[in-house]
Design a protein around this nucleic acid. Structure first.
Length: 276
DNA sequence: CTTTGGGCCTGGACGC
DNA sequence: TGCGTCCAGGCCCAAA
């Protein structure tokens, strides 16, 4: 379920546990992810010192002192398991595809049933070229993502606004859940064509996207501690959705039933009365 | 150029 | 218990 808040939470959790530690051993159990893990992955990362871990869009970038760093993407079902304390790793579970063990005994695993995610090797040059300056749009929590720039991106588009805010080329990290939640918060009909969004409403939508994502990150940060104690998974937490997956339930503001429709092959949930 | 739809995978929920 | 169908949080790519 990783959207930006989940990836941010996972990234922070990994940074806390891994930075300034050295990789002692690596095991790739399955190479055939969405894009295959390179054949030289184990050899390339063996003995690497992890220097820094950061997020860009829904990618996790792990910088090392070697020629290559790592780029992780969780796809639809990817999770990161990490030991609470340095310890011997437990038996592998099905879908544990990659394991790293650090010199202090901390272990970390990439788990992904659907294998829509990936782990790649990247050089610093690639980080910039492919990720930072690639097709990816604004980071939603940065000041660059504002009403003016949002409007510029949608004013000539006929697509529904919901699909536009999920387009990585405009703004990154907003997936199906938070697109629905942000539009509900903003009181905007997800069907509204981009070209019909006014400057004032673009400003409201921008603020709603930031608000919803920040709230989710905060929720992740607080429940993360509890959850990690139990089973070591990072970034999967309960979040109280107002509309997502709430079809036929009463809108919290007006009690009208929440609708579920399909847009570009994805489910959209919204309140037909509060969202115009 | 924009927009739509299919595909990648596995697994869980549901109806019969 | 089993079997079929639908659906799922991302993303790319071909086709219209």
């Amino acid at each position: 379920m990783p959207e930006l808040p989940e990836v941010e939470t996972v990234t922070q959790g990994m940074a806390n546990k891994l930075v300034n530690k050295r990789i002692q051993s690596i095991k790739v159990r399955r190479y055939d992810l969405r894009w295959p893990i390179p054949k030289n992955f184990e050899q390339a990362m063996q003995g690497a010192l992890i220097k820094n871990i950061k997020r860009r869009a829904k990618y996790i970038l792990i910088e090392t002192d070697k020629e290559y760093g790592m780029l992780w993407h969780l796809g639809m079902s990817g999770r990161v398991k990490i030991s609470e304390h340095p310890s011997k790793p437990p038996a592998y579970e099905k879908h544990d595809h990659v394991q790293l063990i650090l010199q202090d005994g901390t272990w970390i695993r990439y788990f992904d049933p659907r294998r829509f995610g990936t782990i790649q090797l990247v050089k610093d040059h690639d980080f910039v070229k492919n990720i930072l300056l690639g097709h990816l749009g604004y980071e939603p929590l940065s000041p660059d993502f504002n009403a003016q720039n949002l409007l510029k991106g949608i004013k000539n588009r006929k697509s529904p606004i919901k699909n536009l805010i999920m387009d990585q080329r405009l703004v990154v990290g907003v997936g199906n859940i938070y697109a629905c939640e942000a539009l509900y918060d903003a009181g905007i009909d997800p069907n509204c064509p981009g070209c019909e969004i006014t400057k004032d409403r673009a400003d409201i939508l921008c603020k709603s996207i930031k608000k919803v994502l920040k709230n989710a990150i905060r929720a992740g940060g607080s429940t993360l501690k509890d959850y990690r104690k139990s089973d070591g998974n990072l970034g999967y937490f309960q979040y109280q959705f107002n509309v997502y997956d709430q079809a036929d339930k009463d809108c919290k503001k007006c009690s009208v039933k929440i609708l579920r429709i399909m847009q570009a092959g994805r489910s959209t949930f919204y309140c037909p009365k509060c969202q115009k």
